[in-house]
Every structure is written in structure tokens, then in C-alpha cells.
Simulated assay, not measured.
Amino acid sequence: MTEIVKGTPITLDKLRNLRLDLNAMALFEEATGKSVFKIGSDMSARDLRALLWACLRYEDKNLTLESVGGMVTPQNLAEINTRLVAAFTAAMPEVESEVSQGEAPSR
């Protein structure tokens, strides 16, 4: 079966892959009570840990929030944020404009 959402590689305790699919979104929501679509610049440390954990769970069901939290340090925080944004971007559908589909733009 083809992967619908491509994993985003990240080096933590070892090379892992982040994937933001519906299961990860639901896990994040269960852990935080928040929708992944409503988090932004006010993301707390708990939110960051939960999002990272949720995106890693498809690959390793034994991960806990605490074990994932132990992989995050001030030294790798910026890289983790960058990789989470990349995972979010990879999960979102590409928007095709009318022009790219060969049609003239409507006026």
C-alpha cells in the first residue's frame, strides 16, 4: 500500500519519521483537548511534546509522552519545530489553481 502522507525524517534518539495523519491529529486532540488546526505561536511545551509524540506514534506504538519529552532539549528544539512544520506541510493537500489546470482564470 502506498503511503498517503509521507514521513518527515527527524533525528532524535535515533532516526525517526514524523507523520501527521488523521490518527496523529486525533492523538494530539486526545492528549491536549485542542485541535491541531488551532495551535499556533502560543503553543505550550505540553502541546509541542504531544504533537511530536502523536506524529511519531505511527512508527512506534510504545512511545509515551514522557519518553518523547526526554528527546527534546534546548539544543534540538529549533530543529524539531522545523521538522514539525515540514510534517504539517507534507500532510496538507496541494492547492491547484484554475490556471495550473489549463483553464483561463475567471473574471
Rank of each mutant, 00 (worst) to 15 (best):
A45E: 07
A24I: 01
Y58N: 11
S35P: 03
L84M: 05
Q75N: 10
D47I: 03
E79T: 08
V85F: 04
S97Q: 02
V72Y: 05
E79Q: 13
A90I: 03
E66K: 14
E66A: 15
Y58I: 10
V95M: 09
R46L: 07
L48V: 08
A54R: 00
E103N: 13
E3W: 00
Q101N: 07
N62Q: 14
E96K: 15
T8N: 03
A50W: 01
E94W: 06
T89A: 15
R83K: 15
L77I: 14
M25Q: 13
S35Q: 10
M92C: 11
D60W: 01
S41C: 03
R83I: 03
E59T: 06
W53P: 02
L51D: 01
E66V: 14
L48Q: 11
V36Y: 07
T11Y: 13
Q101M: 15
K38E: 12
A24W: 01
N17K: 15
N76W: 09
E3L: 10
R49P: 01
G69H: 09
N81D: 07
L22I: 09
E103V: 09
F28R: 09
Q75C: 01
A45T: 12
S44L: 02
D42R: 14
E96H: 14
C55N: 09
C55A: 12
L20K: 03
T82M: 09
S106H: 09
T32E: 02
D47W: 00
N81Q: 13
F88V: 07
E79S: 12
E103S: 09
I39W: 04
P93Y: 05
G102V: 03
N81R: 11
E59S: 13
G7Y: 03
E59G: 00
A26H: 08
R46C: 05
W53D: 04
T73R: 08
Q75H: 11
D47R: 01
I39C: 06
G69F: 05
G33A: 05
N81C: 08
V5N: 12
L77N: 04
A90K: 14
S44Y: 08
C55L: 06
C55V: 03
T11F: 09
D21W: 12
F28K: 06
L63P: 01
S67D: 03
G40K: 02
N17T: 12
E30S: 12
M71Y: 11
V72K: 03
I80P: 00
T2V: 12
L84A: 01
L65S: 05
I80H: 01
L20A: 06
T73V: 10
